[in-house]
Design a protein around this nucleic acid. Sequence first.
DNA 1: TTTATAATTTAGCCTTGGCTTAGTTTATAC
DNA 2: GTATAAACTAAGCCAAGGCTAAATTATAAA
Lengths: 144, 144
Amino acid sequence: MVRTLPNVSEQAARFTLVREAHKTEATEDYVELIDDLISVNGEARLVDIASRMGVTQPTASKTLARLQRDGYVNSEPYRSIFLTQMGKDLADESRFKHEVVFQFLLTIGVSKEAAKRDSEGMEHHVSDETLKAFKKIIRKHQAR
Amino acid sequence: MVRTLPNVSEQAARFTLVREAHKTEATEDYVELIDDLISVNGEARLVDIASRMGVTQPTASKTLARLQRDGYVNSEPYRSIFLTQMGKDLADESRFKHEVVFQFLLTIGVSKEAAKRDSEGMEHHVSDETLKAFKKIIRKHQAR
DNA sequence: TTTATAATTTAGCCTTGGCTTAGTTTATAC
DNA sequence: GTATAAACTAAGCCAAGGCTAAATTATAAA
Ligand SMILES: [Mn+2]
Ligand SMILES: [Mn+2]
Ligand SMILES: [Mn+2]
Ligand SMILES: [Mn+2]
């Protein structure tokens, strides 16, 4: 039972914000993965990006073309993928947020598997304020 | 710095799961809103659904046609929207999950505005296990 | 060094979920 | 009871992000 409805424009603004977040999700997940591949494998190949994202190679290829168009990556045809400075910055930021959410879930007693799964989606919808609250709780827990 | 990469198929499965969640997001948000409109206004009109979702009427109309096709709502042309039993069940489930996430954020000290904003996105990526952990913390906090 | 395999791209298809513009129906006001 | 306004639908466009099938390029093996 809902007795009152939220303010129309504020509710609309929230849904709009979630839609904005969805637009940047693919970008964040891709640059984070590319950065991980580079740091572990020395390079990021399309075949690995595709298999780790769980999509076909043509799908990954098309997404990477968008990322290149938008200035996050660059690459020569048939060669591996590099991050631009902008891409590297976004990767670092995304990984940090992802890690905080993951560690937070572990801290409140969620299993490692569930924490991995849920943080992959939640990370894109956590504001700086909420992230700060998460960090505080992680810190408090570590200090015991 | 990432020293090791996660298992390929497990990582892929997590991304696939997030993509699955995205597919049901619109449905969950719509049926929850429709149910709220019915319980407060007595009926759910397209014009209100559109303005509260922050989209144009044609966009809402098309989405509702999909929901009808998929068995969540029904309606006659130019008339208000009704939930099927399946739609009502999903609305209840969605609202409950949404409410738990919202209350949880308040509990850990996030402001009401940020909690409203973040819960609108997070709700769709929270597993039953995480939801249980959230509920436990809310309960603990209420008991003081 | 040729040949086979693996990686990548190209082309073309689909659904979702946005939009605008224009037409139709319903409700309201006079 | 008719005119106007509001609500809704129809048509058509677009981008993102999935897919398959086929062509191309690069790499590895014989
Ligand atoms: Mn991430
Ligand atoms: Mn993610
Ligand atoms: Mn909700
Ligand atoms: Mn939502």
